[in-house]
Simulated scan of single mutants.
Amino acid sequence: MIVYCNDYILAEKVRIADNFINRFLGLMGKKSLENGEGLLLLRCPSIHCFFMRISIDVIYISRNMEVLGIETLKPWSIGKHFRKTVHILELKEGAASRVKVGDAIVLN
């Protein structure tokens, strides 16, 4: 899947995690993320980075695909809570540097 934000490609190799097991396992075990690689957690309002080896950029997304919050998480940390979060996009650290709260996320 390709993810756009503000008419640019945010990531072009995004996997979907749409069930409990895929969301739970997420990026655990990954030693790195390539440029353009990410994970979209559907129907997932919060995350943790327990058992992870890498830092990631996290974008919290509303039901209407609006960016509610952005943060960089280190391994063994817990993400912030952003009200009305429905989906979460996990990207390589630094990949969300152009994203701002209020931006629209488009999936293709």
Rank of each mutant, 00 (worst) to 15 (best):
I61L: 02
E37M: 08
F50Q: 06
I47R: 05
R53M: 06
G36E: 08
L42V: 14
D57A: 03
E37G: 08
N22V: 10
L42K: 07
L41D: 06
Y60Q: 01
D57P: 08
D57G: 10
R53S: 06
V58Y: 02
F50C: 11
D57H: 02
P45I: 05
I54P: 00
F50P: 06
I47L: 02
E34N: 10
S46V: 00
F51P: 01
L27F: 12
S55C: 03
S55R: 04
P45D: 04
L25Y: 15
Y60S: 03
S46R: 05
I54Q: 04
E37T: 10
E37C: 09
I61G: 04
I61F: 02
G26S: 15
L41Y: 11
L27I: 14
R23A: 02
R43F: 14
I59A: 03
G26C: 13
L41G: 08
I61E: 00
R23V: 01
N22Y: 10
L40S: 10
N22T: 15
I61M: 00
L42Y: 10
G38Q: 11
F50E: 07
C49G: 14
I56M: 05
F20E: 11
E37L: 08
G29W: 09
G36A: 05
V58M: 04
G38E: 09
K31C: 06
K30R: 13
P45T: 03
R43C: 09
S32T: 07
Y60K: 00
F50H: 01
S55G: 02
I54A: 00
L27M: 15
N22C: 08
L42Q: 12
L42F: 14
I47Q: 10
C49M: 15
L40G: 04
Y60P: 00
R43T: 07
L41F: 14
E37S: 05
S46C: 13
L27Y: 08
G29M: 08
L41A: 10
G36M: 06
R53H: 02
D57C: 09
R23I: 01
L39T: 09
K30A: 14
C49Y: 14
S55A: 05
G26M: 12
L41M: 12
H48S: 02
R53Y: 13
S46Q: 02
L33H: 11
I56F: 06
Y60T: 03
H48T: 06
L33V: 05
F20Y: 07
F24M: 15
R53T: 08
R23K: 15
P45V: 03
L25N: 10
L42G: 12
V58I: 03
C49N: 14
